[in-house]
């Protein structure tokens, strides 16, 4: 009897032994004939930004940290800051102060430091609408003093810049600025260019770098660093967080984000022509990639899909396919796109 029981139990134990099922193999991906793939290099420290033109397939890059502030050519009279340059980079409005006033930065509340909203809308930018039309092409401001925090990676006396925006006359913005501990302001005339969205300035270099390697009619998207206002779930708070993502050209390029809405393979010209586009420049944005704990890296949302309507009114569909190079270094986005016809 005991032997029978022993045998049954051993048999049942063996019967119930099991292993992790081997994962089935996938079919090689189908790629339609008109698909073009493109990899760009931001670098594993994300030091570069890369502009891309769908029409020619050409890309050009530069160092995204080479500027601090930029002035728009358009009649929006928008001023933007390069707030992704560091976590601290931000601006606050000090009101009616003079350059000789002593400013105690420790007394400035954290909530007073502002960042540009990545949608690109002027009303949600850090500085906002400050120009009022006087006559013709002449615009004035309320001449408030602003304080820009450039970042702790500099010596203290170079971390803060005081600036006052005076007026715009035609193509030229006139401002004056100096460092926090100085009282004598330097004039800052910035001339915009009809072929560029913005004219840029670097305080430390005291130079006007040309940050758009294409003319504004010649590029569609840029892979760059910028700040998003996000809920950091790990720590339970909302913060402006520097991210790597894709912004579109504010001049004439429109993007529709169809992630999780429609299958990339199902997008055709008929569908694209029914879409309604808005003016936000961050519709591609950053969250086509998610950090996967399982992978210990960013993985691409396989359902990401975008439609781009460029300056000619031509439609392209696009999807992100990778964020790493062959050596598994991040900062090398790869995407696929196809002309819709």
């Amino acid at each position: 009897m005991r032997n029978i029981l022993a045998s049954i139990s051993i048999l049942i134990l063996l019967l119930f032994a099991s292993c992790e099922k081997e994962e089935g193999l996938y079919k090689k991906p189908d790629v339609s004939a008109g698909t073009i793939t493109k990899s760009v290099e931001m670098g594993d420290k994300y030091e570069s930004q890369v502009f891309f033109d769908f029409r020619t397939g050409e890309s050009r890059s530069n160092k995204f940290k080479d500027w601090d502030i930029a002035f728009s050519y358009s009649d929006e009279n928008k001023i933007i800051i390069n707030n992704a340059k560091s976590g601290e980079f931000s601006i606050c409005n000090l009101g009616k102060k003079s350059f000789s006033d002593v400013i105690d930065v420790s007394k400035i509340e954290e909530s007073e430091w502002q960042n540009d909203n990545p949608t690109g809308r002027i009303d949600s930018s850090a500085i906002g609408r400050i120009f009022q039309k006087k006559t013709g092409n002449f615009f004035t401001t309320d001449s408030n003093m602003y304080l820009i925090k450039l970042g702790d990676d500099k010596l203290f006396d170079k971390q803060y810049v005081k600036i006052r925006f005076l007026y715009r006359n035609g193509l030229i913005y006139q401002s004056e600025w100096t460092y926090l501990d100085q009282t004598r302001a330097m004039a800052l005339p910035v001339q915009t260019d009809e072929n560029q969205n913005f004219a840029y300035y670097c305080f430390e270099c005291k130079s006007h770098p040309k940050m758009e390697p294409f003319e504004k009619d010649e590029w569609d998207i840029v892979f760059t660093s910028y700040k998003e206002y996000i809920y950091e779930s790990s720590f339970g708070i909302w913060v402006y967080y520097p991210l790597r993502g894709v912004l579109s050209n504010p001049h004439l390029t429109k993007v529709a984000n169809l992630t999780n809405i429609v299958n990339y393979d199902d997008i055709d010209l008929n569908y694209a022509e029914t879409l309604v586009f808005n003016d936000d420049i961050n519709n591609i944005g950053y969250n086509w990639k998610n950090y996967s704990i399982a992978a210990s890296k960013y993985t691409i949302n396989s359902k990401n899909a975008f439609v781009i309507k460029n300056r000619d009114g031509t439609f392209y569909k696009m999807k992100m396919v990778d964020y790493y190079n062959a050596k598994d270094d991040p900062g090398y986005p790869k995407f696929a796109y196809e002309l819709l016809k």
Partner: peptide, 19 residues
């Protein structure tokens, strides 16, 4: 314990990660 990431398609192959 095996934790799998989602499958990714880089147009050459499908790949995924297992932690």
């Amino acid at each position: 314990l095996t934790d799998r990431s989602d499958a990714e398609n880089n147009l050459i192959t499908w790949y995924g990660y297992n932690s």
